[in-house]
Design a protein around this nucleic acid. Sequence first.
DNA 1: TATTAGCACTCGCTGATATCGAGTGCTAAT
DNA 2: ATTAGCACTCGATATCAGCGAGTGCTAATA
Lengths: 347, 347
Amino acid sequence: MSISERKLKILKAIVDDYITTGTPVGSRTISKREDINLSPATIRNEMADLEEEGYLEQPHTSSGRRPSDKAFRLYVDTFMRVSQLTDEELKFVKGYLNRKYSEMNDIVDVTAEVLSDLTKLTSVVIESKSEEDELKRIQIVKLSDRKAVLVLIFASGSVRDVMIDVPKDINEEYLENLSGWLSRFVENRNLEDALTQIRSGAENDLRLHQRFGEEIINLVLENIRKNAPRKNVALGGARNILNYPEYQDVESAKNFLTLLDKKDALYDILSDSNGLEFQIRIGNENKQEQLKHMSVITASYRINSRSIGTFGLIGPTRMDYGRVLSILQFIGQTINGMFDDGDDKDK
Amino acid sequence: MSISERKLKILKAIVDDYITTGTPVGSRTISKREDINLSPATIRNEMADLEEEGYLEQPHTSSGRRPSDKAFRLYVDTFMRVSQLTDEELKFVKGYLNRKYSEMNDIVDVTAEVLSDLTKLTSVVIESKSEEDELKRIQIVKLSDRKAVLVLIFASGSVRDVMIDVPKDINEEYLENLSGWLSRFVENRNLEDALTQIRSGAENDLRLHQRFGEEIINLVLENIRKNAPRKNVALGGARNILNYPEYQDVESAKNFLTLLDKKDALYDILSDSNGLEFQIRIGNENKQEQLKHMSVITASYRINSRSIGTFGLIGPTRMDYGRVLSILQFIGQTINGMFDDGDDKDK
DNA sequence: TATTAGCACTCGCTGATATCGAGTGCTAAT
DNA sequence: ATTAGCACTCGATATCAGCGAGTGCTAATA
């Protein structure tokens, strides 16, 4: 069942080579490696075996072999080592993130940017509002005769706003009071609790909304429900796909870009990370048809061990997994640091 | 100086043909058109003239001609007619925009999406915070020991939020009071006025901030200044570029996508619309190197005749200008309707 | 018995060559 | 002034040979 030590060594060499060159690897190339003292012929025999076992594939007779998804999986599980980032890389990331952090929105964008710049891959970042994120405040501000804006502020620091239509003769003061009233109900509750709390509160305390009946409360409830779960997502470096010889043909590039064009799709790509800290999906392991020949590595970032977002990289299956993983790790830490109760944030 | 009636007619025919086919147009093709009763030879003579005058160019001897930027400019200025959208198109837009409007953020995204879906071009949308947009409210909410979120709410309905570090021992109540105090100063003032107002107010009213001195006020001022002008921008249908035979070669596609990858660049593309309602920039008329072979059509959307955003389409110079313009027009109107003091919004 | 040298074979890639056809410019006829 | 006729241009497409990286198999070797 298990493969011999030697086969493993050869397989690793093939994968290493393929990751850097992207072209099928021949037996001679491998036999020239210092750590392998075998003739091309021997290696050919082993390669034939490895092919039979599904670790290698041959584009056509008389070409070299390339690793299959199965081989990459083995490689990742067995050989991958999280590499150390260089000093420049560390500086690059820090400079990027320190310079610009401000809105949650921005953080998502900037993270996507730094990820794709650093890896030359395509990055996706979502700020996923956890079910558990607690509300801090609800504020309704009147803008004009019939328009108001409803603002939800969460404990994680994320903010949602939505325009609502309000009855014409409602006044600012009323909305102000309503905001205070609602905020008292929701403070430090997650969304689900907050909604029930408001609903039951509305039944017991008729003073504030008697004039507009349940209309305004329902409006608020409905809009909270509809908008709070909205996901904030950013995409970076989509063009990078065109750097890989595998994607030089326009048709497959278009396919890929089409997938990325829908926010929902981006969300799907990152969503089934099952709360794992890191996840690597190789080729066929992806559900999406367009990603069957690509790999997706995702990580989640957390505040107080609660996940508040996921970010990931998409690239050809032959990406440098070790390096990519270490980058994700480091960026996760850095972002975490930004949300910590930031003592000594420069150290 | 001016061109003969007949030359104009021929030129128009050439442009029309080139817009639909994208390939250089030969004399025979034109002579077969119903409204033109001339032999190929005659047309060839006219075409030679038009080429001399800079309206046509020949990729190589013995190929047909294609219109130059100058020809498209003439075409747009002279012949373009805003076409009528079909019923399906109208429905498509309305369905799209009615279904999803909520956050300002979303509106920008959705506009980009509908624009590119409808035109098969690349769309860019920015919500440009006008200098004149008035503040409605400032709210500071404490999140943890040292973190708070500062929220700015504008009369246009747009909302900005930014995380700030606050002194550890500041309490919620203080921030609450501060919010009220600040809001009173800024209400219905534009950003510039609001800032001076707060500054002078801080000198005269020491009650609220005495405990933390100027620290917290400065923090707030600084963050407002830094973040309020932030632009919200969305991109749609970048992949559409690959549908055009002119951009089948990967190199130019990559160039184009690289341009779109930076938000600042997107902003630049739309920014010099000079407050015009519509603007068409053809080929060379664009400043950006990557757009020298493309056209950009932009429109601004307004509330009460004040521009609150710009949206535009980018595509090959041979786009269907009339149709694109009518789409921009209609979408502008529709969005306007959403922000109107929405009486009879379904009609 | 495991390894390797040797060799015929495969097949994609490159470059040269020929052919085709859409389109032109020019000239001479209408 | 227009047009028919014709030689010419040049990109696009197809065909074909030669190259070379790589293979699988067999027989010799340690």
